[in-house]
Design a protein around this nucleic acid. Sequence first.
DNA 1: GATAAAATCACCCAAAAGTATGAATGCCAT
DNA 2: ATGGCATTCATACTTTTGGGTGATTTTATC
Lengths: 123, 123
Amino acid sequence: MVLIELSNYSVFTANHYREFLIVLSALALVIFGYLLKNQVNTRSSLLKRKQLPDDEKLALLQMSKREFEVLAKIAEGKSNSEIADLLFVSENTIKTHVSNIFSKLNVKRRTEAIKQAKEYGLL
Amino acid sequence: MVLIELSNYSVFTANHYREFLIVLSALALVIFGYLLKNQVNTRSSLLKRKQLPDDEKLALLQMSKREFEVLAKIAEGKSNSEIADLLFVSENTIKTHVSNIFSKLNVKRRTEAIKQAKEYGLL
DNA sequence: GATAAAATCACCCAAAAGTATGAATGCCAT
DNA sequence: ATGGCATTCATACTTTTGGGTGATTTTATC
């Protein structure tokens, strides 16, 4: 809006650079619109990409925070033992979580879980 | 550009609607820039999302068409035997392809392969 | 403080995935 | 026609994953 006002001002104080200023203003306005859309996109993609467990969605799927953490690691390509190390628990524990994740997502394999979680907008 | 010219023309044929026209032009220019960025985004995301094997990228990774087919199935959450059935070959063949895919993507697991392939823009 | 849900872990078994090696076939381009 | 590449398949072996069951401990909630 400030840019718009400024552009219009330039037009009004027209001297022999009038045409030049008009083109310049037009350009500025186009760039402004371009950047505006850029900003809009950036914000919305940030919202989509947040790694935080969306409480509502997790609740719908009856999935706990811990299970979501494990799910995220699976999607990062981590193995059960790697996840165990990262979360400082035993591999058996991770296996339990993974099994529970599968039944809640209604899948049989981790690759399916990744696909399904993305469809649910969890990842 | 046509829009810009049009806007400038409006300014020159100024009557008592002058200010109104200027604001209108400005608005049009902003919208134009906004839509421009929109178009740019759409085109680039289409490029990224097409499921067809991008010959250039595949060539860079030395990956064959068949290997890419298998990779796509992996990303769909399919097991080796399911992929074998879908492509009408033996599971052993799929295992061979999968191993080759892993070494070319420089990963050790199918979940990692999915992640890596997406980073390379293959999926 | 009782109850419920979440998180932890173990053990066993089975299935799937992954590694290594070797080999046969078909296709394409020089 | 032949050398290289892609595709196919097999066998043997190891590792990872997944299923089922049961149990202990934390944590939160009423």
